[in-house]
């Protein structure tokens, strides 16, 4: 292997990863590594935090300060890391179930505080590690091992959820649109405040098979055909009919939590 990105940013001895053939997660993980490289971050000052699930194994492969926590709690651990040492660039990796089901409370409150964390949601619309149960982002009517007759739940739009809770940067892209995805991750890392990028992934093994979505390539093609860029959707709404919109949903500047806390400390000195 002679790939400088892999050699510089990955723990080569921990590879290959555990993800299935055709899984989209590796694409997101390498997009994160490229975004970190482009952002020129010091590896020693980057901390990657995850919870539990397929996506949460990513930090183990990445050569930074890495913290693999309990299910749903990555943002809560990350809040402690960031507030205790704001010098660290803290990136949270979480799956759709991890982030919006068991960890949903932490997501909305991290967003509300506008603490400078970058969250990348690996959204494959299913609980993969436990074998294909429906998640909060599984579409109504889709199947999972716990929705054998079709899911009657309504799904979350995680990007809009984060935006609604106060995230000051929220964007969505897919593993097919990887250049755009990387661009958003870079923007999220550079953004001061709580940022979230929803990376729509594919799970051919469970979600794909359960829902007869075909091969991994078929699923990638489905992403290509089902998502439309926000700018196009705005200019030509007819092209967006029945499609998902990707792009930057929110990008604004608001006071950041750890800076506000430091101001309190400064004020008390005076």
């Amino acid at each position: 292997m002679n790939n400088p990105l892999v050699e510089n940013y990955f723990r080569v001895d921990k590879l290959p990863h555990i993800w299935c053939p055709g899984c989209g997660h590796g694409i997101i993980m390498s997009a994160i590594a490229r975004a970190i490289e482009k952002s020129g971050l010091d590896k020693d000052k980057v901390c990657i935090v995850s919870g539990i699930g397929c996506s949460s194994r990513a930090p183990g492969y990445m050569d930074f300060n890495t913290l693999h926590t309990t299910h749903g709690r990555a943002l809560a651990f990350a809040t402690g890391v960031k507030l205790a040492n704001p010098e660290l660039e803290v990136i949270v990796i979480a799956g759709d179930g991890d982030l919006s089901a068991i960890g949903g409370n932490h997501l909305i409150h991290a967003a509300r505080r506008n603490i400078n964390l970058t969250t990348i949601c690996f959204n494959n619309n299913i609980y993969g590690m436990t074998g294909g149960q429906y998640s909060p982002t599984t579409a109504t009517g889709d199947k999972g091992t716990t929705a054998p007759y079709g899911n009657i739940d309504r799904p979350f739009d995680i990007t809009q959820l984060a935006a609604g809770a106060g995230a000051t940067y929220a964007a969505k892209a897919t593993v097919y649109h990887v250049n755009q995805l990387q661009k958003y991750i870079e923007a999220a890392i550079g953004h001061k405040g709580f940022s979230m990028v929803e990376a729509v992934s594919v799970c051919p093994t469970y979600y794909g098979r359960k829902n007869k979505k075909g091969s991994a390539v078929d699923m990638m093609n489905w992403l290509k055909d089902s998502f439309v860029d926000m700018k196009i959707a705005e200019k030509m709404p007819e092209k967006a009919v029945g499609k998902f919109v990707m792009g930057e949903y929110v990008n604004k500047v608001e006071p950041e939590y750890t800076e506000l806390y430091d101001q309190v400390i400064e004020r008390l000195k005076g």
Binding site: R73, F77, A78, T79, G80, L83
Partner: peptide, 20 residues
């Protein structure tokens, strides 16, 4: 920091401890 729940309360403390 006052966290959103008891679970987050201990989680953040563990995160902070990891920074020394």
């Amino acid at each position: 920091i006052q966290m959103e729940d008891e679970i987050a309360g201990i989680a953040a403390a563990i995160g902070a401890s990891l920074t020394g």
